[in-house]
C-alpha cells in the first residue's frame, strides 16, 4: 500500500462498532485528506522496454522534466498513469467528451487524442496546476460557489477550457462561454451552473439560473 490510496485499510467495521473510537477519529480525519494526490509520486506504470519508447522533455504545471514514454501512450496516459496526475479524466478516450481537456501552451486540447511523444518541448497545464497547491483561482472559487460540479467527472475539463477562454476573453458573455465549452459534455446536465461560474469569474453578472436564492 502506498499513500496514494483513497482510504486507509486499517479500520474495520468491527473495530468501529466495538467503539475503538480514538482510532475512528483518526480514520475520519484522514477521510478528507487521503484523496490528496502527490504529483510526480512513484510512477504507477513502467515503460515496457519491448515496445518503441522515447524520452521527451516537457513542462508540466510549471516544472520542467525529462520523461520516458512509450510511443503509443496518449498524453492522458502519461499524465494519469505515469505522472500520477489523475485529476484529468477519461470520459470516452476518443475525442467526444472533453473530460480529458488540458492546456498545451495555453491552448485547450483533448489529452486522450494527443500522443505523449508530441509533447516534447511543450508546456502542459492540468487541473492540478491551476492553483498548484495554493489558493483557488477565481474560476475555481466560482465553481465552488455556483455548485458547478455535480458528480465532478467533467469538471476538470470544463475548468481547463474555461481557463483558456478567460485568458483570451477576460469578460465573456454566457454565449461566449457556451461556444467555448461546447466540446465539454456534462451528463449531470449542470450546464447552467458552469456557464454562470465562468461568467461570474470574468466579473459578469450571474445570468442563467433563476429561483434558488
Amino acid at each position: 500500500m502506498n499513500e496514494k490510496l483513497p482510504d486507509s485499510p486499517d479500520w474495520t467495521r468491527r473495530e468501529f462498532l466495538a467503539g475503538t473510537s480514538a482510532a475512528l477519529v483518526v480514520a475520519a480525519a484522514a477521510a478528507g485528506t487521503l484523496e490528496a494526490q502527490t504529483p510526480g509520486a512513484a510512477p504507477a506504470i513502467a515503460v515496457d522496454p519491448a515496445v518503441p519508447h522515447s524520452t521527451i522533455r516537457l513542462t508540466v504545471n510549471g516544472v520542467a522534466r525529462d520523461v520516458e514514454v512509450e510511443d503509443r501512450w496518449t498524453l492522458a496516459e502519461l499524465l494519469r498513469d505515469r505522472l500520477g496526475l489523475t485529476g484529468t479524466k477519461i470520459g470516452c478516450d476518443r475525442g467526444e467528451c472533453g473530460a480529458c481537456t488540458v492546456l498545451v501552451d495555453d491552448q485547450p486540447v483533448y489529452s486522450c487524442s494527443n500522443l505523449a511523444v508530441w509533447m516534447d518541448g511543450r508546456r502542459v497545464t492540468t487541473v492540478e496546476g491551476l492553483s498548484n497547491g495554493g489558493p483557488l483561482t477565481p474560476l475555481q472559487q466560482a465553481f465552488v460557489a455556483h455548485d458547478a460540479a455535480q458528480c465532478g467527472f467533467c469538471t476538470s475539463g470544463q475548468l481547463m477550457s474555461a481557463t483558456a477562454l478567460l485568458k483570451r476573453n477576460p469578460r465573456p458573455s454566457a454565449a461566449d462561454v457556451k461556444a467555448a465549452l461546447a466540446g465539454n459534455l456534462c451528463r449531470c446536465g449542470n450546464y447552467n451552473r458552469y456557464v454562470d461560474s465562468v461568467v461570474a469569474a470574468g466579473g459578469g453578472v450571474r445570468s442563467s439560473v433563476g429561483g434558488d436564492q
Partner: peptide
C-alpha cells in the same frame, strides 16, 4: 472536486 484531488475508481493505483 475543482482541484483534481477527488479520487474516482479509475484513479486508484495499487502496486
Amino acid at each position: 472536486r475543482v482541484t483534481g484531488r477527488a479520487k474516482y475508481t479509475n484513479d486508484v493505483q495499487l502496486p
